[in-house]
Nucleic acid binder design. Structure first.
Lengths: 114, 114
DNA sequence: GGAAAGCACTTTGTATAACAAAGTACTTTG
DNA sequence: CAAAGTACTTTGTTATACAAAGTGCTTTCC
């Protein structure tokens, strides 16, 4: 199925954005696992592919923004990998938030400038 | 010179974003040429690389969002390629604006949700 | 108790864009 | 006439989002 230019653009626009979403989410949450994030985001209107999120979480752990731990819930079932924010992640979030806000502001100023 | 994770992330975040900036700019402007855009954006705090902008403008013309025309100013000098918005570009701008706004809204709702 | 469905994560291949740096080609300045 | 400036192009590198298929385990249901 071929994609329109608009759809392709949307994909590009999400680069980097998803990382920020994960950091913001984890800044509010104790520890969550991948599928849970997937479902939460979907509820909020952000439909992310599995093959996007899991590698994303791995990368974010590799560069030190996240910590992870395998856990198998006593009650039942499957082992899950729980992610939480590292100190570096919490610190990184600040300038990332600012960068996003700055971009938004620039966009507005471009839109409004003669 | 090696880049920090944050710098790498910033580069990713600009994917797609720059296209939107160009469309917004051209929606306000008769016809502008590449270097002019580069300078305007820089004034607004958006420092874009030449090797990013020129190929971007070409791509945008190829997929029908922009029109271009070579012109050599009578007064003097170098031929310049002037870009303007096509009808498709003007139409495309609307959903793109919405998508960006929607992303921003989702981000806020992630930040605020328990 | 065995097949099917579901859970949770991983892996592979494809497409695309931003950047840095070097290159082209012309024009103005000193 | 050389040097600096204007304007655009090209090449190679690095990254990420996605789709689709794959792995391996657990619960459900006849």
């Amino acid at each position: 199925m071929n994609k329109t230019n608009l759809q392709k653009w949307s994909i590009q626009l999400r680069k980097g954005f998803l990382e920020l979403c994960v950091l913001e989410h984890l800044a509010r949450q104790e520890a969550v696992y991948g599928l849970e994030i997937l479902q939460r985001f979907k509820q909020q209107g952000l439909d992310v592919n599995e093959g996007t999120l899991y590698p994303l979480l791995n990368r974010m752990e590799q560069n030190g923004w996240l910590l992870s731990e395998w856990q198998t819930p006593a009650a039942s079932g499957h082992p899950r990998r729980f992610y939480s924010l590292s100190d570096a992640g919490r610190e990184g979030l600040v300038p990332m938030r600012e960068e996003y806000a700055s971009n938004t502001k620039i966009l507005t100023s471009i839109r409004e400038s003669k």
